[in-house]
Design a protein around this nucleic acid. Structure first.
Length: 470
DNA sequence: GTAGGGTTAG
């Protein structure tokens, strides 16, 4: 069979979801002597379905490669969450004197954003400048996104100010960056500026604005911007409804959140019901929680945990037990959490149940302290994120305990920029401390234990904000 | 003919 035909066939099989046929076809070819473009097509196709090993094999066997081959490998690895391998390919590319281009960097920057590693980020950015690659709107958006996810919102802002801002995606990246940093008012201010500069917001802009409101509990503003969408002829999508349900639910307006779900012009999906379910848990409303859970057709492990948590909150231990039994019976496995940490340039990975952290107890203490403060100062708990990993046994002991604590800790970090007491140290000094770092929503925070003093550090633009909690 | 960016949730 002609090689071009084979590569097209593989591509078609994969786009139709018949990946088995594609792999089989590849195996049956006695000798891989694809021309350049056919091989590239095959690499892209297998990367698309997550078969990076097959793609790698094809790539390794190529007698000649061009920049598209390299970029397909690097981009493919990044898409499949294998950034280390993407970096390895990139280094190989450089060592063989192949020149990277804007496509190469776009993938690498995205990889850094996923990982939240600031040293890698800086290296890639420096290299981009060294190679004198013009920063177009795609690279600009990617850079802004990368720096905000690495905890360097100030650097993200600097980049934003220096690049061409006539594309909506650049604004979206910046608005979303501010939103995840808990800077909702800045995000809203940027929206106004965007309108002044005559760039039309799109549906993603509103997702950013609504999530910003949701993170900070700005109900009135959330409602206002949700209504504003229609004046830009943007129909609310599932994502916007989701943000509203999240916002209203967290603030305790369960009925209004439920009304939104019912008024939706499309069928609510699992994400919407999950947001609602999550709100039911926070509000300790097991009745509404059951309504939500009944709607969720395909239960994932997380949904069971949420329902069980609702019962725990309402002291309905029997019901909680029943849910957990069902879980076991159905053979539901909990998703094991994973997190990444960059320390002195090295990326460390942690898995749930990983008990190798000597300072785990101290971290708990910090979080408990944060909860006390949160309750005292009346902050609204925002998103629930896994700040650190605990074993399944510990989760079993008290399902509610862990997530509640993390939610509150996250809430205080996001909703109180004034909490940090003083700005003392720079990044380098902190790296010298005996410390423990965690990635919170891809923003770098550190919990530092020095002689029984527990500190929480947040990094932004190379400046470390420290706060004492004990 | 093949490669790149910006979203929520967990």
């Amino acid at each position: 069979m002609h090689q071009t035909l084979i590569s097209s066939l593989i591509s078609v099989y994969i786009s139709c979801g018949c990946s088995n046929l594609a792999s089989q076809l590849l195996k049956e070819i006695p000798c891989w002597d694809f021309d350049l473009i056919s091989a590239n097509v095959i690499i892209v196709a297998f990367m698309k379905i997550g078969e990076s090993d097959i793609a790698k094999k094809v790539f390794d066997d190529m007698p000649i490669r061009d920049v598209v081959s390299w970029n397909s490998m690097i981009g493919g690895f990044v898409k499949n969450g294998r950034f280390e391998e993407a970096l390895r390919v990139f280094q190989q590319m450089l060592s063989l004197n192949n020149e990277p281009d804007a496509f190469t960097f776009a993938s690498l920057i995205k990889g850094c954003a996923q990982l939240g590693g600031r040293d890698h980020a800086q290296w890639i950015h420096a290299l981009l400048i060294e190679k004198q690659i013009a920063i177009n709107y795609i690279l600009g958006s990617a850079l802004i996104d990368m720096y905000s996810k690495c905890g360097r919102i100030e650097t993200a802002k600097e980049i934003f100010e220096t690049i061409q801002r006539n594309y909506v995606s650049v604004w979206n990246a910046m608005i979303n960056g501010l939103a995840v940093h808990g800077l909702a008012l800045d995000a809203i201010a940027l929206f106004s500026r965007m309108v002044l500069e005559k760039v039309s917001p799109d549906c993603i802009t509103f997702v950013g604005i609504l999530t910003a409101c949701s993170h900070c509990g700005l109900i009135e503003l959330g409602r206002k911007y949700f209504d504003l969408m229609s004046s830009y002829a943007i129909q609310p999508q599932l994502e916007h409804y989701g943000a509203m349900v999240d916002l209203l639910g967290r603030a305790g307006h369960l009925d209004e959140a439920y009304a939104i779900v019912q008024e939706m012009s499309m069928e609510p999906n699992v994400v919407i019901w999950m947001a609602f379910l999550s709100a039911c848990r926070t509000q300790k409303n097991s009745h509404m929680g059951e309504v939500a859970i009944n709607k969720i057709e395909t239960l994932k492990s997380g949904d069971y945990v949420l329902l069980s948590n609702i019962y725990c909150s309402a002291n309905k231990w029997d019901s909680a037990e029943r849910v957990r039994d069902t879980m076991k019976k159905n053979g539901v496995r909990k998703n094991s959490g994973k997190s990444w940490i960059e320390m002195a340039g090295v990326i460390h990975q942690f898995k749930a149940g990983d008990k190798s952290h000597l300072e785990r107890e101290a971290i708990y203490k910090v979080l408990e302290g944060l909860i006390r403060r949160t309750k005292m100062e009346g902050f609204i708990p925002t998103k629930e994120l896994v700040l650190m990993d605990v074993s399944d046994e510990e989760k079993e002991e008290n399902l509610n305990y862990h997530s509640e604590k993390l939610a509150l800790a996250y809430g205080i970090l996001k909703s109180s920029p004034g909490t940090a007491i003083h700005i003392t140290k720079n990044l380098r000094t902190c790296l010298d401390c005996h410390c423990w770092m965690k990635v919170v929503s891809k923003i770098l925070y550190r919990v530092i234990v020095v002689r029984d003093r527990i500190r929480f550090h947040r990094f932004e633009g190379g400046v470390c904000t420290c706060g004492d909690y004990f």
